[in-house]
Write a protein that binds this DNA or RNA. Structure first.
Lengths: 342, 342
DNA sequence: ATGAAAGCGCTAACAC
DNA sequence: GTGTTAGCGCTTTCAT
C-alpha cells in the first residue's frame, strides 16, 4: 500500500526541478536563513507558487528541524476556566506561527504521563502543562532531556520548573477577609481537589484570614470539593445542614460557587440575604449570574499568554532563564456577598 | 546543530539490538499487523519496556503510516458552544487513541484555507471542520485528493460532503412559533453571521413561522447580528428603539440572547415582563441565568461525537459511505418567554 | 517468520 | 551562493 495520501503532493524536489535548482536551494528559500541569490530566490518562489508547494512538517521535524507545534496538556476542555487560558495561549501562538496540539487527560494520571512522553518524542517543540495532577511522574524526565515546558496554574516546588500562576493564597485570604469584614463569623469553605497546590493555597489563605481575625478554624466548616458544580452543590448542602449553619461560604472556584448557590436555593435560602457566597476565578459567567457573583479574579487569559510567551522565548533562546510568574489576584465585589442578617 | 531533542531517544533500532532481532521485526511487533513468532514478540516487548521505547510519530507518518492525529478547525475556542462540541469530539477520539490537533482561524478566511492545506499535507489523517466560513476555497482540493473530512454545524450543499448539523430551520420555526402561540405579534430577530448556512436556516424558520401564522415579515424587525454578546446587545438596542417596539425577540444563539437581555435591562425593561426572549443552542449557561433562558437546544456534544465517529469510520473503511446527519432540535421552555403584557 | 534495503520529504553539514 | 549527500526513524516491499 503505497501512501495515497501524499502520492500526488508536490515536494521540495518538484519545486527544485521546476525552478531549475537543486533541492537544497529550495530548502534554503523556504527556511530563508542562509543567503540565497535574489534571482534564484525569486525563481524558486515562483515555482513554489505555481506548484502550490506546502512543507511537510513531519519530514521537517524528522530531519532535525522544528515541528512548530506546541503541546498543551489539559484536564478537561469544557470549562470556561480552560477556555480563557487556551484563548490566551492561542493568541500568542497564532502570532508566532505555532500550532497547538491538544491532549486531554480527563484527570487520568496514566494518560498525563503517556501524553507527555509522546509529545516530547518530537511531536512538539515544547509543552504547556495545565493543572498537572501528578507532575513528578514525568517532569523529571523532561528536565533530564532538557525538553522545554511551562506549567500553568501550578506553583511548582521544583526550583528549575517554570510556571505561571496566580497568588492563590492571597486570593483565598482576600475572599475570606472580605467576608469577615462584612461581619461574618461562621464562614464555610468548599475546597478544590486537594492534590492541587492551588487548591491548598486557597485553603491556607482562608485559614490565615480566619486566624488573623482571631476566628477559629473549624473542621466541620470545610468541605472537600472538586472544582465542579455538583461538588459545590454537595458542599453547600452539607454545610447548610450543619446545626450551626455558616452565614457565608467561600467556594474555591466559580463553578462550585454556582453549585453552592444552587444548594442554598434548594433549601429555600436566598443568596445573598441568607447566605453570602464568594467564588474564585471570575469566569465570564460570574458576571452574568443573578445575583452577580462576588469572586476573586485571576487573569486567566493573561496567564495563558505569559506561559506561552515564556515557552516560545525558551525555544528561541535556550540559554535564557525566564522567571516564573505569580500574578496578583483581585477581589471582584459584586452581589453575592453582603453583611449577615441578624 | 545536530538535534539534541532526540539525540538520546531510544529508537526502533535500539530495541532491535537489545532484543537481538532485526529492526523490521520490531516494527512488526509495534504495529502488530503481521504475524510474529510469540517468543520473538515477547523478547521485543520486553526490550521495549526495558528501554522505554516510544514511537516517533513523525517518522511513522513520513514512512507512510498514519499520524493518528485528527485536525480540528475552529473559528474561536472560547465559546461554550465550541467547548461542548470539542468535548464530544474529544470523547470519541480518546476512545480510539487519536490525538487532536487544533487550529483556530479567528474568522480569517485566509487562515482557514492555509490550515486545511497544511493539515492535509500529512499532519492529520482526517479533518473536522467546524463552522466553515468559506469552505469552497479548500474543500474542493480535499475532495480531489480524497482526503477525509467531516463538517460540523454546516449543512453543505455539496452532495459529496459529509456533515453533521442540527435542524436549524425547524429550530428557528419552533422558537418563533412558540412566541406566536404565546400571543406575540411583533417578534424581532437578531440573526447570526449571514454567510453561514445555519444562520440563514434559522432566519428562514423564523420567516416561515411568521408566514404560517399570517404575520407579515417586517425588515425593520430584523437585525443582522454576529452570534456575539455585543452583537446581541446592539441588536436588542436597535429593535427596542423602534417606534413600535417588538414584544419578543428571537436571538439566533444564546450568547446574543444574553446581549439582548442586557440591552433590555439597559433600557429599564424587564425580561420577560416587558420583553420575551428566546435563544438558540442551550449552552450550559442558559440554565444558569436568571431568569433562565428559554431556548432551542441543539445537541452539541452529540454532534461533535457523531462527526468524529463518522470521520474515524471513514478512516478505517474508506469504502464506507456514511450519511450526513441532521439532528432534531428541541425547544427548551424556561423563563424568558411569556405571553405579552397588555 | 524474519532480515535487508529502499525510500518517505526534509535539514544541515560539507564541498566547490 | 549553490549543489551533493548523509541521515532523521519508521513502514513496507522483497527476499530468504
Amino acid at each position: 500500500m503505497k501512501r495515497n495520501k501524499s502520492s500526488n503532493e508536490v515536494t521540495i524536489k518538484d519545486v527544485a526541478k521546476e525552478a531549475g535548482v537543486s533541492y537544497s536551494t529550495v530548502s534554503r528559500v523556504v527556511n530563508n536563513k542562509t543567503y540565497v541569490n535574489p534571482d534564484t530566490r525569486d525563481r524558486v518562489l515562483q515555482a513554489m507558487l505555481r506548484l502550490g508547494y506546502q512543507v511537510n512538517l513531519h519530514a521537517r521535524s524528522l530531519a532535525g528541524g522544528q515541528s512548530n507545534v506546541i503541546g498543551l496538556l489539559v484536564v478537561d476542555l469544557t470549562t470556561q476556566y480552560m477556555g480563557e487560558i487556551i484563548s490566551g495561549i492561542d493568541d500568542v501562538l497564532a502570532a508566532h506561527q505555532y500550532e497547538l496540539m491538544l491532549y486531554t487527560t480527563h484527570r487520568r494520571k496514566a494518560k498525563e504521563s503517556a501524553y507527555v512522553h509522546m509529545m516530547a518524542r518530537g511531536l512538539a517543540d515544547g509543552l504547556l502543562i495545565s493543572l498537572p495532577r501528578e507532575p513528578e511522574a514525568y517532569l523529571k524526565s523532561l528536565r533530564q532531556k532538557g525538553f522545554p515546558y511551562v506549567i500553568i496554574d501550578h506553583r511548582s516546588e521544583e526550583p528549575s520548573d517554570l510556571f505561571v500562576s496566580a497568588n492563590n493564597y492571597q486570593g483565598g485570604y482576600d475572599a475570606t477577609n472580605y467576608l469577615i469584614e462584612l461581619g461574618h463569623r461562621r464562614i464555610g469553605i468548599v475546597t478544590g481537589w486537594m492534590d492541587m497546590v492551588s487548591a491548598r493555597d486557597r485553603l491556607q489563605g482562608y485559614q490565615a484570614a480566619l486566624a488573623d481575625a482571631g476566628l477559629p478554624f473549624e473542621a466541620e466548616l470545610l468541605f472537600q470539593g472538586d472544582f465542579s458544580q455538583p461538588g459545590g452543590f454537595n458542599g453547600g448542602t452539607c454545610l447548610l445542614e450543619l446545626a450551626e449553619r455558616p452565614s457565608a461560604i467561600f467556594a474555591s472556584n466559580d463553578i462550585s460557587a454556582m453549585g453552592v448557590i444552587e444548594a442554598a436555593r434548594a433549601k429555600g435560602l436566598q443568596v445573598p440575604r441568607d447566605l453570602s457566597v464568594v467564588g474564585f476565578d471570575d469566569i465570564p459567567t460570574a458576571a452574568l449570574l443573578s445575583p452577580q457573583l462576588t469572586t476573586v479574579r485571576q487573569p486567566l487569559q493573561e496567564m495563558g499568554r505569559s506561559a506561552t510567551k515564556m515557552l516560545l522565548d525558551l525555544l528561541k533562546n535556550p540559554e535564557d532563564t525566564p522567571e516564573s510568574i505569580i500574578f496578583p489576584t483581585e477581589l471582584v465585589v459584586r452581589e453575592t456577598a453582603v453583611p449577615p442578617a441578624e
